[in-house]
Amino acid sequence: MTLEVSNLVGGYSQVPVLNDVSFDVKNGELVGLIGLNGAGKSTTINHIIGLLTPFKGTIKINGTTLNEDVKAYKQQIAYIPEAPIVYKELTLKEHLEMTMLAYNLNQEDAWARAHRLLKKFRLDNKLDWFPDNFSKGMRQKVMIVCAFLTNAKLFIIDEPFLGLDPLAVNDLLNLISDRKKQGASILMSTHVLDTAQRYCDRFVLLHNGKVRTEGTLEQLRTLFPNAGDSLNDIYLSLAREGESE
């Protein structure tokens, strides 16, 4: 599954937040979308999942845009939003059932997988509880379980680490690498840079709605030899540079 964003101009109202954003996620790749608060990470993601309409430019999944074929575009995506969002009147079990229905999953296999995921995130005794009353971290886990229950080929994950305990962060990263090995592509936005550095194959650095630079850590190091060694150092120096511009 490949994702291709080209020359995207977009935003919420008439004012563009994103200016000419282009990048891609190749088959079996984990790409980190890095940027400060307000850099345009979530806006980019909202465009990819089809919540916002691009003013200009195209977004293609496996060569298809949303306008060309809604079904082909949407059926392959699993999305974890930045702020967990759950149904007020559904229990955890019903959330899982809802996901199985929506992604048309085989009930038996899905439940087997669900139980493994629930156990991993220590939610297995809360099946009949209402996630609406859970803490932020636990609701986030519900969103993760629902997304990784699917057989999606493209995962769009918006800032997954906030509010998660260290164990859950680790489990999530393992889940991501498992899926990657199975051939899924993942786009993940974050500003937890040391985690991103360790796990992402490539990075797209957004700043003020533009792609500042992109590439693997090695490429970034060669591009900015004086910025430092870690992603953190490179990013900080780029962001400061952007400030003083």
């Binding site: 999305y79 969002i85 149904y87 007020k88 992604y103 969103m143």
Partner: peptide
Amino acid sequence: VQDPDYVFLLPQES
């Protein structure tokens, strides 16, 4: 429709 629909019903849009 409810707020979480755009996440949970995403693959069913068609």
